[in-house]
Design a protein around this nucleic acid. Structure first.
Ligand code: MN
Ligand code: MN
Ligand code: ZN
Ligand code: ZN
Lengths: 147, 147
DNA sequence: TTCTTATTGCGACTAATTCTCAATTGCAAT
DNA sequence: ATTGCAATTGAGAATTAGTCGCAATAAGAA
């Protein structure tokens, strides 16, 4: 299957796991976020729509979504992991403003290429990588200057 | 001062803080690790030497060491942050084997340069960056092949 | 030496995540 | 359709990493 739900069903079946209504709701709700989200936000969104799933179920489902490649953890803000879709949207890395929290996404093909060269040098086979640059965004630099 | 302890003393004095025996032990013990370490390992090493510091003191001292630039957080393994010296040893990034946990350090000047170019493009001012590549090390690839 | 503040260990507390267990349900094989 | 069994669920207890409040102590400037 090449739909999102199809991919998840296939993954679960291959592992002898079941496609339940709860898992369907979690999948659907995660994909309804436009940017990044954390577990708390996911839980709230589900409950606002009166889908009263328990936290335990969310935490239990999360690794399946990550291992199936549909969702990925992208970084942590104040000790809470943030997630985002990992299907249908191209790979990218992040600039994170330490002052206002703004996230800027970027992709630099040449960096990706050089990473692979490093891996080759060590006989290392990449599964995934994460590049996060923390600093001050344009806006915040301006505000700091005027103060 | 340009010794490690001197730098820490200077940092503390500038903040109106005190250089205590506890802080000295924590600094010294952190710098006695050769590679990466976590809070648990630090605590154990201190206690093995009969320095019975409390966890609270360690956690309270950690941010001073990080803000003074002597120690930095490098990545997380199984939800525990790992730290390493950030003085006397040059910046580098990490390959992390998801099978055996081996850490390979590398530095690729060209990647660093390209990162700065990206930042410039967005008017972003870097404070620090972290590049972690997770995958399979040479050894583990070999073992997987023979099984 | 004195005095002001910062620091300490302790144990209580918090927040995030995991676990236990009894009741339920998906789904593969009749 | 029915059955049977293993996987799943929610609830709340347990665990874990980290933080906080407090009373006793100690740096270090004057
Ligand atoms: Mn993103
Ligand atoms: Mn390192
Ligand atoms: Zn900003
Ligand atoms: Zn390995």
């Amino acid at each position: 299957m090449d739909t999102i739900e199809g991919k998840f069903r296939d993954y679960l079946k291959a592992k002898g796991l079941k496609f339940t209504p709860e898992r369907e709701l979690i999948l659907e709700t995660m994909f309804s976020f436009h940017g990044h989200f954390d577990i708390e936000q996911l839980y709230d969104k589900l409950h606002k729509k009166n889908h009263l799933l328990s936290m335990a179920t969310i935490y239990r489902t999360l690794p399946y979504l990550i291992n199936s490649g549909l969702i990925k953890e992208v970084f942590r803000c104040q000790n809470r992991p943030q997630y985002e879709k990992n299907f249908g949207l191209p790979h990218h890395d992040h600039l994170i403003c330490v002052r206002c929290g703004r996230i800027i996404e970027f992709k630099e093909e040449e960096i990706e290429r050089l990473q692979e060269r490093v891996c080759k040098r060590f006989g290392f086979k990449t599964v995934e990588h994460r590049l996060g640059i923390r600093g001050y965004c344009k806006n915040c630099l301006q505000k700091i200057k005027n103060s």
